[in-house]
């Protein structure tokens, strides 16, 4: 039974557990995107980066694929980890600026703007759909083809696959092709206002509350009243 130290807390886990699972067992939050319960770990989005080891020998690893070893020291919220995660989410956002999942992650990490050229793709190659199709649906109809900047997810020979049952599982798990928040911001903007916890609707209207959360910062409700 490996015993490891995560953020100063000792935890003993079953052999074969990943660092991510151990951290989640302790209630520590690590942002994830390509990880999904029930699917094989992939380690593609690099959002679950944690710092393993101490001093000069510490390095960044993806917690979703790293096995919990005996005597491991893990830091999930060090300066280096936070900086790297911020960069990763900024890069993801530049590929897929209109995905709500990525926008939410960006707001969570305090990313306010994207310094890179936005591409407006609808895929971040996280491989969730590929694993879903193979592992849960037992079909294996889609997968990665080509490589480098031409890499994409498609069916064999770009034709309708014979093994696809159009179950829709791939679309269900996709974090990139969901719609962005329908706030007042222009597409591609990172507003992040849903995550600041200051309700403004109640200041303006006595009992006007957003059903999505405690806030009304997005401004859609205010606009409606003015019209």
């Amino acid at each position: 039974m490996p015993t490891l130290k995560i953020d100063g807390l000792d935890v003993t886990v079953e052999p074969g557990t990943t660092v991510l699972e151990a951290a989640q067992f302790l209630g520590l939050e690590i942002p994830t995107l390509c990880h999904m319960d029930g699917l094989e770990p992939y380690g593609g989005c690099r959002l679950c980066l944690v710092e393993v080891g101490s001093g000069d020998k510490s390095r960044l690893v993806t917690s979703c694929t790293y096995p919990a070893e005996d005597g491991l020291t893990v830091r999930t919220n060090s300066k280096r980890v936070l900086r790297s995660r911020k960069m990763m989410v900024e890069l993801l956002l530049s590929v897929c600026p209109s995905s709500r999942t990525i926008q939410d992650l960006a707001s969570l990490m305090g990313v306010q703007k994207v310094r890179f050229k936005t591409r407006n793709d609808d895929c971040i190659l996280c491989g969730r759909c590929v694993r879903m199709c193979k592992e849960q649906m037992d079909a294996g109809a889609i997968g990665f083809v080509n490589r480098g900047h031409k890499r994409k997810i498609t069916t064999p020979f770009n034709m309708k696959s014979e093994v696809c049952r159009t179950c829709g599982g791939c679309i269900y798990v996709c974090p990139a092709c969901n719609l962005r928040c329908q706030g007042p911001n222009a597409p591609g903007d990172v507003c992040g206002s849903c995550l600041s916890l200051q309700p403004t609707c109640t200041e303006r209207f006595d009992d006007y509350m957003c059903y999505l959360g405690p806030t009304g910062n997005c401004g859609t409700c205010i606009k409606k009243e003015e019209n």
């Binding site: 294996g140 083809v145 069916t155 064999p156 020979f157 696959s161």
Partner: peptide, 25 residues
């Protein structure tokens, strides 16, 4: 040939997309 990849997928019980992925990689 496309046909040979399909037959190969059949013979080896490997999903066609896996073979296609390798052939394009």
């Amino acid at each position: 040939p496309e046909e040979s990849l399909r037959s190969l997928s059949n013979e080896l019980s490997v999903p066609l997309i896996k073979i296609y992925g390798i052939a394009t990689f």
